Amino acid sequence: MTDRILVVGAALYADGRLLAARRSAPAALAGRWELPGGKVEPGERPEQALVRELREELGVEAKILERVPGEWPLGRAGYVLRVWTAELISGEAHDVRPLEDHDQLRWLAPGELWDVDWLEHDRPAVAEAARLAQA
């Protein structure tokens, strides 16, 4: 039996726009878009991991708001994605820069959410986060 590995993602909002991050690695994922985040380390709560990952990947401080309903299997055995909505608490949206794993960022308005080529497992999470944002 494979151990479950939890990966957390952020539906990070600023000024009503959702942040999309384009993968630069690994080669199989490069050029596709995802919600920023990463693996939960042993002893870490998922929300703590998400704050840490946003700091490491984007150099920002974020406030975790609400868990997005659902859990999505990733392309590797045992890996699952959970997503939370979040908002910037330090800096401005135009100051956010990719630091690790990404080569481009885009802030997407509600009508632009499907203008990028999301990774398959991020699509239902983006749809559910968008539904929450409109509620």
Rank of each mutant, 00 (worst) to 15 (best):
P42W: 11
D122E: 08
G111S: 12
G75Q: 12
A30M: 10
Q48C: 04
L54F: 03
P73H: 13
R22G: 11
D117H: 09
L54G: 12
D103N: 09
E71S: 14
L132H: 14
G31R: 13
D122C: 15
A21Q: 05
P26G: 08
G75D: 14
D101W: 13
A129V: 11
V40R: 07
E57H: 13
E44C: 05
R17V: 04
H102L: 05
P69F: 01
R67C: 02
A14L: 02
A14I: 06
R32G: 10
G70L: 04
E66W: 10
G78A: 07
L19I: 03
V8R: 13
E66M: 08
Q134W: 08
S90Q: 10
P26E: 10
A93R: 07
R52T: 11
A10G: 01
L108I: 02
W84A: 08
E47V: 15
E100W: 07
L113V: 13
L81C: 11
E41T: 02
L113H: 09
P73R: 14
E57S: 08
D103W: 10
E112G: 06
A86I: 01
H102P: 00
V7N: 08
Q48H: 09
L35A: 01
R23G: 00
E34V: 13
P69Y: 02
R123A: 12
R45Y: 10
